[in-house]
Simulated assay, not measured.
Amino acid sequence: MFEILTGTGLSAAAGLNAFIPMLILGLLDRYTDLVQLPPEWDWLANGWVLLIVGVLLVLEIAADKIPVVDSFNDWIQTVVRPAAGGIVFSSGVSSETVTVSDPDTFFGGTAWVPVVIGIGIAFVVHLVKMMTRPVLNAATVGAAAPVASTAEDTASLSLALAAVLLPLLVVVLLAVVVIALWLLYRRYRRPRRVRSSSGRVLRP
């Protein structure tokens, strides 16, 4: 149960920002006892890998806060985020954490299954984000980009930490993220009222 929630939280976080959950897992495994990555995933805690992921995270955070550039970045991330989702889901469900003491309970002999599940979860979250951002930018003339990006980064960080430390909280955080993104999309997607030649206000 906790394994699934851990993997789900990490892969959903990757759908918002590919590098935050990867960095969280690597840092916690390298510098704390909260996460013990299995041998096949311990490269995530390698110092050079952490440095590269950290640099990529800085670039991602910067690009995602600039109107137009953020949409272009989202197209590139269509490959990166789902791939990261597969990595963190698989490494998450097979790691020993403060809440998971028997990581082999699920997916014991089918290593490819969690990777595929993680890819799917991250892709869905990424797709919602990708659809929402252009609508927000168009409605606010780009002013919403840094605000929305900061909120998404915060949600990604919260999901990643909750996935490791308190998996049950993942359900609540996921619901909040999905509902918030959907409401924003619906609100700003509505066409503005236009005026006819007679001066009357036409409502869609």
Rank of each mutant, 00 (worst) to 15 (best):
F2N: 12
G7E: 03
T8G: 10
N17L: 03
M22E: 13
T32A: 04
P38F: 04
E40G: 12
D42I: 15
V49P: 10
V49M: 13
I52D: 09
V55H: 08
L56W: 11
V68I: 15
V69Y: 12
N73M: 15
W75Q: 10
I76K: 10
Q77P: 15
V79H: 06
V79F: 11
G86S: 09
V93R: 00
S94G: 02
V98L: 10
V100H: 01
P103T: 05
D104E: 12
F106Y: 02
F106A: 13
F107K: 00
G109I: 12
A111T: 12
A111W: 11
W112M: 08
V113Y: 09
V116N: 03
H126W: 01
L127Y: 00
L127D: 07
R133P: 03
V135H: 03
L136S: 08
L136E: 06
A144V: 14
A145L: 10
P146H: 08
S149V: 03
T150G: 02
D153S: 10
T154N: 08
S156G: 11
L159P: 06
L159N: 04
A162N: 05
V164I: 09
L165S: 12
L165N: 10
L166C: 05
L166E: 05
P167T: 01
V171W: 03
V171I: 12
L173R: 00
A175N: 05
V176F: 09
V178E: 01
A180K: 01
L183A: 13
Y185I: 12
Y185M: 15
R190P: 04
R190S: 14
P191H: 06
R193S: 13
S196N: 14
V201W: 08
